[in-house]
Amino acid sequence: MGKGILEVFIQYWPVFLQGALGTLKFAAIAVLGGTVVGTLVSILHLSKNRLLSGFAGVYVNVLRGTPLLVQMYISYFFIPMVIPALNSIDKIYYVLFALTLNSSAYVSEVIRGGINAVDKGQTEAARSLGMSAKNCMIRIILPQAIKNILPALANEYIAMIKETSLAGTFMCYELMYTRTLLANKYLVWQPLFIIAAIYLVMTLSLSWLVKVLEKRMSVSD
């Protein structure tokens, strides 16, 4: 069996810390990027323009219907191959690119559902006052939509935190990569439990944060 879990953690905590910071960074980029891109995709999806909504539909189907790991490989190897100018960019960004697009597809579907669930009368009232389509979406529809979809959105964010673990496959320094590092020191099983515990702390913290946010947003109920 060798060393105990606690012993390994005490000896190598800086390795885990750096891994955890890497994971947090990747997760933050995936969550923020995925939410921004996902919101835009959901708006395209709801557009009256068939070309735009069709594009959004294909985008979502392709990204949801193929494995994230495959998308990461394609992004990692194929993009620099066809666009050599991008070769100088750190490879991490190719992995993050795939992660962000993948998460945007899931987020866009959640947001689309949320927007659809807001009463049509809200749009009509805002537009009849002379509010622009953009302001109506940002100030009237999205705040109501997001309040309703917060639990579903939290699910997606939790999934994203966990999926950043795939980045370790590409030698990106995040939590899962610490396993590879420590396996070289013949520490095979101890790091796994430490890694799992750290993921759990992260996802539980996020759940808690969303609960607080839900409470704050429910002042109008």
Binding site: A125, S128, L129
Partner: peptide
């Protein structure tokens, strides 16, 4: 949009903005 600002409309189901206070409902636009 500019013309609609001069055409007020009141709906059967009110369509007030539930996430805004009464005051904000009036001032936002």
């Amino acid at each position: 949009n500019q013309h609609r600002q001069k055409i007020g409309m009141v709906f059967q189901l009110f369509n007030v903005f539930p996430h805004l206070t009464a005051l904000e409902n009036i001032t936002i636009t």
